[in-house]
Every structure is written in structure tokens, then in C-alpha cells.
Amino acid sequence: MPTACNVVVLISGSGSNLQALIDSLQPGVSPARIRAVICNRADAYGVERARNAGIDIRVLDHTQYDGREAFDGALIQAIDAFEPHLVVLAGFMRILTPGFVRHYAGRLLNIHPSLLPRHKGLHTHQRALEAGDREHGCSVHFVTEELDGGPLVVQAVVPVQSDDTPESLARRVHIQEHQVYPMAVHWFAEGRLQLVEQGAMLDGSLLPSTGQIIRA
């Protein structure tokens, strides 16, 4: 792993996980360096967060491309211009093509607001409550061609309270997201975390199928 680990962050919205990464991955603290933020929506507040941090920004409006393959091809060109060692999905609301995922195999991370493999997809907090789950949380995982299905790195678990609403549960999960995502990126930047054929490996040992578990 190089001394500096170039990171490109993809966003679509408010960028709260981006802000957590900006705040946590400071020079002298982590070898991870956010080289660029790429967004598919010009009005996303995350663009302003990147601008305030002095980070290069690229906006690629997916509606201006003739289909998913064309957009992902342009996205790859934009990302690769920054020579990334790691690409981080931080609320990037696009389903990526298999070709894109293969291009960044082993260096593409995502965070999902549930304890995978439970509640893949959207509306996870509402679904957790409807299912009567006693625990909920978030998962950092390597991205593969299976939607929300790549090898898990770390999961943060929060108890579901009897009076929880989707909004109150989401707030507590977000707090944990902002802790574990920078942690996983830092592990990768230090060369401690990697994807191998058998799964995710941390410090030379295969992680369990659940990833590392952290309880709030």
C-alpha cells in the first residue's frame, strides 16, 4: 500500500458520511487522502461539503447519458483521472453496472443502513421496525456484482427501542455509520484490509461472514 492512499468518494445527497470521512481522515492521522468527490446531482449538499473542504469536485448528471453503461463509462474516466487506490460509495444512489464493479474489484467499499444480509435495498429502518427486529444497524462491505451482497468488513449494531420510529432509528444508525465507515477506510489505507478470493481479510486473518461486530 502506498504512503498516501488516494480515495475518491461518490455521493448523491447530503453527504453526511462524506463529512465524517473528511473530519476523520486528516493528514498525520490516516494515510487516506480524499482526492475527489464525484456526484450525480449538482444540487446535492455534499457538493458544498466537498467545496468547503477544498476537495476537487466533479458533477456527472446521469440523466445526460444514454443509459447506465454510458454513464458508468464516463464515471470510470472521471474517477480514474485521480488515480484512486480506493473508491468509496457514500450515499451514491445508483445501481452500478457489472463492468464498473469489476473495474474496481477489491477497492470499492459501500455502507448500507442495515445489518446485512437483512434488509437489502431501500427503506431499511421502516422495514426493520415492521419486521419486529430487536437489533438494527449498518454494514460496511466490499462491493461485488450482487446488490448489497459483497463480503462484510464491519457492522455496527444498535438496539431497537420500543418507541422507535424510522426517523429516531435512522438517527442512531447514522451516528454509527459516521464511526465505522472512516474506520474501514483507514484500515484499507493502512494496508490492513483487503479483499481476497475467500472474503474480506483484516490484519492477515479472514473476517467472519458478519464482518467485525461493534455494538453501540
Results as ranks from 00 to 15, higher is better:
residue 123 H to P: 02
residue 208 P to F: 01
residue 209 S to N: 05
residue 121 G to Y: 01
residue 165 T to Q: 08
residue 48 E to V: 13
residue 87 V to L: 10
residue 214 I to Y: 12
residue 119 H to Q: 02
residue 92 F to Y: 15
residue 30 S to M: 10
residue 56 D to T: 15
residue 213 I to C: 05
residue 8 V to C: 10
residue 88 V to N: 03
residue 184 A to D: 10
residue 82 F to V: 09
residue 135 E to G: 03
residue 166 P to S: 07
residue 40 N to G: 01
residue 3 T to K: 15
residue 144 T to G: 04
residue 181 Y to W: 07
residue 116 L to I: 01
residue 32 A to L: 13
residue 11 I to N: 03
residue 104 Y to F: 15
residue 113 P to G: 06
residue 150 G to D: 03
residue 188 F to H: 14
residue 106 G to I: 09
residue 46 G to F: 04
residue 200 A to M: 05
residue 83 E to A: 15
residue 95 I to T: 00
residue 121 G to D: 00
residue 184 A to Q: 06
residue 82 F to I: 02
residue 151 P to F: 00
residue 194 Q to I: 13
residue 115 L to I: 05
residue 97 T to M: 03
residue 193 L to F: 08
residue 96 L to M: 14
residue 35 R to V: 10
residue 82 F to Q: 11
residue 210 T to P: 03
residue 143 V to N: 07
residue 65 Y to L: 09
residue 211 G to K: 06
residue 44 A to R: 04
residue 214 I to S: 12
residue 208 P to L: 02
residue 193 L to Q: 10
residue 128 A to N: 04
residue 148 D to S: 02
residue 48 E to G: 14
residue 182 P to A: 12
residue 50 A to L: 13
residue 91 G to K: 00
residue 215 R to T: 10
residue 75 L to E: 11
residue 43 D to S: 15
residue 82 F to M: 09
residue 132 G to L: 00
residue 206 L to S: 05
residue 39 C to P: 02
residue 15 G to D: 00
residue 46 G to H: 04
residue 13 G to A: 06
residue 88 V to D: 09
residue 65 Y to K: 08
residue 13 G to R: 00
residue 100 F to M: 11
residue 3 T to E: 15
residue 19 Q to L: 09
residue 143 V to F: 08
residue 46 G to K: 06
residue 40 N to L: 01
residue 35 R to F: 01
residue 213 I to D: 03
